[in-house]
Amino acid sequence: MRVRILGIGMGPQHVTGEVADALRGCDYAVAARKRDGDALLAVRRQVCDAYGVPLVAVPDPERDRDPADYRAAVAAWHEARVAAYERVLGERGGTAAFLVWGDPSLYDSTLRIVRRIAERGAVPVEFDVLPGVGAPQLLAARHRIVLHGVGRPVHVVPARGLGGAVAAGLDGIVVMLGGEQPVFEGLEGWSVWWGANLGTDSEELVAGRVGDVLPAIGAARSRARERAGWVMDIALLRRPE
């Protein structure tokens, strides 16, 4: 069978022509259902409805959110997901789509999970990947900025990696999966361009010196959660000159 891993940005408005054509050729799409009333699942359903593709919702295995060993906990969660999706693919066959938020190359486990299914061999799988609009691209566009300085690198890290990036002397850092406000503690002199729920009706944007805008970020984050029921945020941080 064939699996197509498709980047969808933040919803129907970001689906590229290439992804749209691929989705039309799929028999169904597969997505995790994390809870009753899952708002993110509902957006995936909107994408599927737009292209006449049924969506199969798979209950997401429980995940330890405060593990002693983060990598081991994520590996166990991924294996549980592999087993859950493998059952669905084995039962249905055909051509299946996985709809990935943003772009499949950044902080998403779908590609690893599908590759693992293929490696296990219980369900013969061939897969390909089509890119989507990523959160860093949306952040730069919304703030009308270039992510890096002239001739300088930009580093992309999850929130838990920010401290190490700062300690290493990096001066341009994109922080994804930001979590709660304390991720910026100790960086009050840095500049920040922050966004939450980019590309959606609950989008929020804040920019300025970290020490000046922390309260605004906290308030904006609360508004985004209240409107959408969830928050995905991202920020570009630059060390002061």
Rank of each mutant, 00 (worst) to 15 (best):
P240L: 05
P67N: 05
D64R: 09
G149S: 07
E180W: 14
R35C: 10
R44F: 04
H155W: 07
A216D: 04
Y51R: 00
D171S: 15
L99R: 01
R116A: 02
A72F: 13
G178I: 03
D21L: 12
V156W: 07
L6R: 14
A168S: 11
R63W: 15
V154C: 12
A220Q: 03
A220R: 04
R144P: 06
S105W: 05
A219G: 01
M232H: 12
G132A: 07
E91I: 06
V231E: 14
G9N: 11
R33L: 04
A20T: 14
E185F: 10
R87V: 08
E91G: 05
R238C: 04
A140S: 15
A75R: 02
I217F: 10
A39I: 09
F184L: 15
L6W: 04
V166F: 04
G229E: 08
P59I: 05
L89S: 12
T200M: 06
G189T: 06
A31H: 02
I113F: 00
G195T: 06
L23H: 08
F98P: 01
A167W: 03
D27K: 02
M176W: 12
Q46F: 08
A76F: 06
R71G: 12
A216S: 11
A80T: 05
L198N: 13
V206E: 12
A29H: 05
H143S: 13
V19F: 11
